[in-house]
Design a protein around this nucleic acid. Structure first.
Length: 215
DNA sequence: ATCCCGAGGG
DNA sequence: CCCTCTGGAT
């Protein structure tokens, strides 16, 4: 067993004792809604996504409705989440593909999810894990990437490589919870700008403890 | 590497 | 002002 694996398992056990299990930080009632909310979550807080999705899903409840939507209407509905032109275009195009290729059902396979415009491994992993309970990998977002690097669980800044490193380091039965544990710790303690290392439960396991300009 | 892009914090 | 927020496509 590598030192990275030993450290990862200890980190998981410590953090899972602190933070409660969470199914999702995004509000949704169907896999398609989770997919849509996850597309909107790019470079945006989940809190803000949850502020626009009630009206969005009220007007366009599923892919069949969204497939008929006008670009400018969707843009207006998601504007405050940023990147609103790309997000609106991707949500409509993904919905059309789901209707045309998958009978209106959000696909449950990684390979199929990756065909949807605006969907790469991070979004696909969220939908599979939190929407369908099918854990194939670990979703790597801005928090997961930052903590993986600081904690010495990956040397890379490439999401695909970080995911591979994390999957190698954590027990497979823990994969589904890693994303939320690292996000919660990233928000509460290991923040991007000024990490509160003195209050960190896994500081003893952290190679970058106390490095204020941690990359 | 660069672009997309609004909103909140420091 | 600058940095950050559950990224992805070109």
């Amino acid at each position: 067993m590598s030192s990275r694996t030993r450290s990862a398992e200890a980190i998981h056990d410590a953090l899972s004792g602190i933070y409660p299990p969470v199914r999702s930080f995004l509000d949704f009632s169907t896999p398609w809604q989770l997919l849509t909310a996850t597309i909107l979550s790019a470079q945006c807080t989940d809190e803000r996504v949850n502020r626009v999705t009630p009206a969005l899903f009220e007007r366009w409840p599923g892919p069949r409705e969204m497939a008929q939507a006008a670009q400018e209407d969707v843009e207006a509905a998601v504007r405050s989440t940023g990147f609103f032109r790309n997000k609106a275009r991707n949500i409509i195009a993904a919905s059309r593909l789901i209707v045309a290729e998958f009978g209106g059902e959000t696909p449950r396979r990684m390979e199929d999810l990756l065909r949807l415009p605006g969907v790469a491994r991070k979004t696909a992993n969220i939908v599979l894990t939190q929407g369908f309970g099918l854990v194939e990998g670990i979703a790597v977002d801005t928090h997961v990437a930052r903590l993986a690097q600081r904690l010495g669980l990956s040397d890379s800044d490439r999401p695909e490589v970080i995911e591979r490193d994390l999957c190698a380091a954590f027990r497979r039965e823990d994969w589904g919870g890693v994303n939320h544990l690292l996000i919660q710790h990233g928000r509460a303690v290991c923040t991007a700008r000024k990490p509160r290392c003195s209050a960190c439960a896994v500081a003893a396991l952290c190679p970058k403890k106390g490095v204020t300009s941690a990359a």
